[in-house]
Design a protein around this nucleic acid. Sequence first.
DNA 1: CAGTATCCCCGCAGATACTG
DNA 2: CAGTATCTGCGGGGATACTG
Lengths: 155, 155
Amino acid sequence: MEEGTLKSPGHTGDTDPSCPAGAVYPYDVKQWDTREDCEVRQILDRIADKWSLLVIALLDCEGLRFTELRREIDGISQRMLTRTLRHLERDGLVSRTVHPTVPPRVDYALTPLGSTLHATIQSLVTWTERHQREIAAARAEYDARAEREALDHGA
Amino acid sequence: MEEGTLKSPGHTGDTDPSCPAGAVYPYDVKQWDTREDCEVRQILDRIADKWSLLVIALLDCEGLRFTELRREIDGISQRMLTRTLRHLERDGLVSRTVHPTVPPRVDYALTPLGSTLHATIQSLVTWTERHQREIAAARAEYDARAEREALDHGA
DNA sequence: CAGTATCCCCGCAGATACTG
DNA sequence: CAGTATCTGCGGGGATACTG
């Protein structure tokens, strides 16, 4: 991304210097370079980050409220849920509808584009659920073997 | 993970303090807590990290050498490729076979378990390839709208 | 309720140099 | 060739406090 020089002087925290001057983004919704050398990587980074997969898997087609997502996901902080949703919204995968009531109510749902992702991601998540025991076993075995080898070499 | 007290005194770098004492792991192959409160998250973190998806997608069933993977993936550092492969090996998704020749030759391939993941991940990767334009468009639109709204509020 | 703003840590990941 | 070792920076992400 090679633009350290653009960095605004007093910048310490979260906001992104590469955003169009004057635009204010919540947190640091990135402006990706559109140079084509790494598009797929960028998109993968977004989809396969810590929370996006779970959010998309949960959203299915019916909308959920902010708090419902928060409760469902377990472990996600308010900050990260907001950021994740903003990113997904920006990528056109999730729609955000604000009901101007008080207290406010915001619903999130998959867009048509997002829906085309849902099946795949769902199957990824269920795969991990189905195979967690096998993976845990593999890890245990690997660790045991590594430890034995370490002992052989060490002493 | 709440075990800051376990941290070995002089520890600064990459290795993992939670590994069984005396075992030496390459880099910092993590020892996950097996307490069940966050298993799926852990596994997802591993599978859906920056490089694993691409590695698995590439490996298919036929084996590839270290350097072939390195060349194919583009942008990955030697360090990250090694680490990713070690993690996948530990999780029982990838097998590593060393040919005791000189110079050495190491082949990586999907295990049967890994193969069950391949289809899903492949479809995830091809999805991003197929929809990158739509996503780019969505981003542009989002940014444009955000900028307009920022101007309305600002001035 | 649904966010923003701010502070701050630590672990990911790149760069570089060295080895069997 | 296929790694390991070490240093370092940056940004992901948690915690907390505040607002419309």
